[in-house]
Simulated assay, not measured.
Amino acid sequence: MTEAAILDDLDEKTTAIVNAARTTFLARGFDAASMDQIALTAGVSKRTVYNRFRSKEELFGAAITETCKHLLPVNVSDIEDTLPADELIRALSRLFVQGILEPEALSLRRIAAFEAERTPAIGQAYLEHGPASLVAECAPILARLAARGCYSIEDPEAAIWQLGALITEPLHTRILMGDMPNDLDAAIDHQVEKGVAAFVKIYRV
């Protein structure tokens, strides 16, 4: 087998393991999910799982990372120069809010919150691979907009955290607690519009 074929095989197995982990965590929760079950679902040996992930916590982090890849399903560079700053923020915000309100994202958030007190590593894995990773990815967008003179932002990472709160709350918490609005799309539109308006008011030059 060539080196390229070996790498392809490794990638396929890793992808299968992460997908199996997501399925198992969502079905059983973190505590009840076993590495044996994840290996069985992925169609690989338990040794293969441990060769790629040192612990169940690390595998949970990988599952979070995979889920977060779908929160902004666009290439930002393709639209950044074609939209006015406020419209860009609004478009990305709506995609993000839609993503975090998907059933899988909500379930993983609930699992992390439930497990974090007794297993801090789970909370840290969620924070590192979820919110903190997204902040690090999105802060440069605000930095570029500020450099163009669209906003007055000294700390892009802090501004992203603020934007996240403005465009998600209280809708996110209400849905996490089981209070689903009758018209989710309308509720998202309302939350995003109010959140982006508040953000622009804070940071407008």
Rank of each mutant, 00 (worst) to 15 (best):
M35V: 08
G29H: 04
E102A: 11
L72C: 09
Q124F: 12
T173V: 10
D11H: 15
C68I: 08
V196L: 05
I17R: 02
S55D: 03
S152F: 12
E193Q: 13
V76I: 09
V196I: 07
A136F: 04
R174W: 05
L166G: 10
G123I: 07
T173Y: 09
P73V: 06
T2S: 11
R204Q: 15
R110L: 07
T67A: 11
R204F: 12
A143S: 07
D81M: 07
A125R: 01
N51M: 08
V205C: 14
L171V: 05
A16M: 03
A85T: 04
I153S: 02
P156K: 00
I100D: 01
S55Y: 01
R174D: 02
N51G: 08
I122D: 01
R144V: 05
T23D: 09
A113V: 11
R52I: 02
I175T: 05
I79T: 10
A125K: 00
E102H: 11
Y126H: 07
G43R: 04
A158H: 09
A20H: 03
G61C: 02
Y203P: 05
M177V: 12
A91R: 15
V135A: 08
H70D: 09
E58Y: 05
P84C: 03
K46Q: 06
V200E: 09
K56R: 02
K13V: 00
A4F: 14
R94M: 08
S107W: 09
P120C: 05
P156L: 02
S77T: 13
A112L: 01
L142F: 01
Y203T: 08
P140Q: 04
P156V: 03
A159P: 01
D36E: 14
E66I: 04
